[in-house]
Design a protein around this nucleic acid. Structure first.
Lengths: 218, 218
DNA sequence: CTCCCTTGTTACTCGAGCGTAAGGCTACCG
DNA sequence: CGGTAGCCTTACGCTCGAGTAACAAGGGAG
C-alpha cells in the first residue's frame, strides 16, 4: 500500500561483492565455454551475469584476468573433485578406477567447466595455456606414477615398448576423449564409462576379445 | 649495365592464380595454427603469403571461406596419407598398426596441418566444426569396425563392458593425445609411437606388466 | 597498335568490442 | 544529519581488423 510497490524489485539490487563475483564468474564460464575466448564478448558476459560491464572490470579486471580467474576456479574444482574420490591405500587399478569415476561425475555435472578447461583454455596463448598444460602434465605424471608403481612391483624395467610418460599421455587423452563422447550420450553412467576405459587400458582389446572382463575388486 | 638493374626484382611478380592460391593457403594454415581462427588476422596472413589483402578476397573469399578451404585441404591430405598406408587384407591389429604409423608420420611432417585440424577447427562454431567432427566420427567408426570385426570373429557379442563406439572414441583420443605429446618429443619415431599405442590398447596394462609385448606379425 | 582480361596494389570505410570517465544511489557511522 | 565508502549505471573513446573501392600494370589475341 506504500508508493511504488506495483513493481516488486525482483531484480536483486545492491548485493555484496563476493556474491557478484560468483555471478560474474558463472556467467563468464558459460559464455567462454560456448564461444571460446576471442569470440566471447564482455558485453554478453555482463548481460548474462545481470550486471553492467564496469562491475566486471572493477571486480575481476581485464578480459584476460577474468578468463584466468575462470580457469583457476574450474581447475581447482576439478582437482578437488578427483582427489575427493581417491583412496591412496588401494592397489593401482582401483585407484585409477575411482579417479576415473570422479572425473566422469564432474564432467557430467559441470560440463561447461570441462569445456572451458579442455577446449578453450589452450586456444589462448600465454600464461593460461601454460597453467592448464601444467595441470594436465601433473595429471599425466600422477597416472604415470600409478602405472609405474604397478609395473615395478612386478619387476618390469624400462624397455623399448614401455614408456610410462607416453602411455600415460595416451591414457589421459583417451579419458578426455571419452568424456567428450559422453557429453553426447548423457544416459551412460560414470561407472560404465570408467569400466570401458579400465577394460581398454588395463586388459586391452586382446583380452577383451578373449572374453575377459575387468571388474572392481571390492 | 642496363637501367634499373641495381635491384633485381627478386620479389616474384605476376604468378598464375593456382600458385598464388597455394601460397595463400600455406600462409593461412601457418597463421591459423599459431594463433587460432579469431586471433589470426587477414593482414598477417597476407603478409606471410607475400601478397596484398585483396588478392585473398578475390581468390579465396572471406575469412571464414579461407579457413574452410584450409580445413578441407588439410583434412584431405591427412585422410589420403592414412589410406595410403593401409592394407585392407591384413588382420585387424596389423591394419591398426599401419594406420597409426601413417598417422604419426603425417603429424610429424605436417605439424601445422595437424594443429589446425585438431585444436583450432573446433573453436569456430558452425559448418567447419561439423565438418571436422564428421571426419573424426568417420575415423572412430572405421576403428570401431576394425575392433568389432576382430571381436565378432571371436564370438564376442555386445555386453555391458564392451561398447565398440565408446572404446573407439577413447582409442582415437589416445592416438590424438599421443600425437600432441610426440610434438614435444620429436626424437621418437612413428614406429615407436604406434608400438606404444598398440601395446596399450591391444594388450593393456595388465599384460604389459606381466611382461608381454605386442609386435607386428610380419 | 590496341583492346581487354588477369594479376596486383594502396588507401580507405565501418562496425565490433575492450576498456573507462563521470557520476548516482544506498547504507552505515559519527 | 552530514560525510564517506561501497555498490552500480549510462554513455562514451579508441583501437583493431574485416572487407572494399579505385586504380595500375603486364601480356597475349587479333
Amino acid at each position: 500500500m506504500s508508493e511504488e510497490d506495483q513493481r516488486p524489485p525482483e531484480r536483486a539490487r545492491r548485493l555484496p561483492r563476493a556474491v557478484r563475483e560468483r555471478q560474474i564468474l558463472d556467467a563468464a564460464v558459460q559464455v567462454f565455454s560456448r564461444h571460446g575466448y576471442h569470440a566471447a564478448s564482455m558485453d554478453e558476459i555482463s548481460d548474462v551475469a545481470g550486471v553492467s560491464k564496469p562491475m566486471i572490470y572493477t571486480y575481476l579486471g581485464s578480459k584476460e584476468d577474468l578468463f584466468g580467474a575462470c580457469i583457476r576456479r574450474e581447475a581447482t574444482r576439478l582437482l578437488e573433485a578427483i582427489q575427493a574420490g581417491v583412496q591412496p591405500d588401494l592397489p593401482p587399478d582401483m585407484q585409477l578406477w575411482h579417479g576415473l569415476r570422479s572425473f566422469y561425475r564432474f564432467v557430467a555435472e559441470y560440463r561447461e567447466s570441462w569445456t572451458v578447461l579442455h577446449r578453450q583454455a589452450l586456444t589462448v596463448g600465454g600464461t593460461f595455456a601454460a597453467e592448464v598444460t601444467d595441470m594436465r602434465v601433473r595429471a599425466i605424471q600422477l597416472v604415470a606414477a600409478l602405472v609405474v608403481s604397478a609395473g615395478t612391483r612386478k619387476g618390469v624395467g624400462e624397455q623399448a615398448e614401455f614408456s610410462g610418460e607416453g602411455l600415460s599421455a595416451a591414457l589421459v587423452g583417451a579419458a578426455e576423449s571419452l568424456a567428450d563422447w559422453a557429453l553426447d550420450h548423457p544416459d551412460i553412467s560414470d561407472g560404465v564409462l570408467a569400466s570401458w576405459l579400465m577394460n581398454l587400458v588395463w586388459l586391452g582389446f586382446n583380452d577383451l576379445i578373449e572374453g575377459e572382463v575387468w571388474k572392481p575388486s571390492e
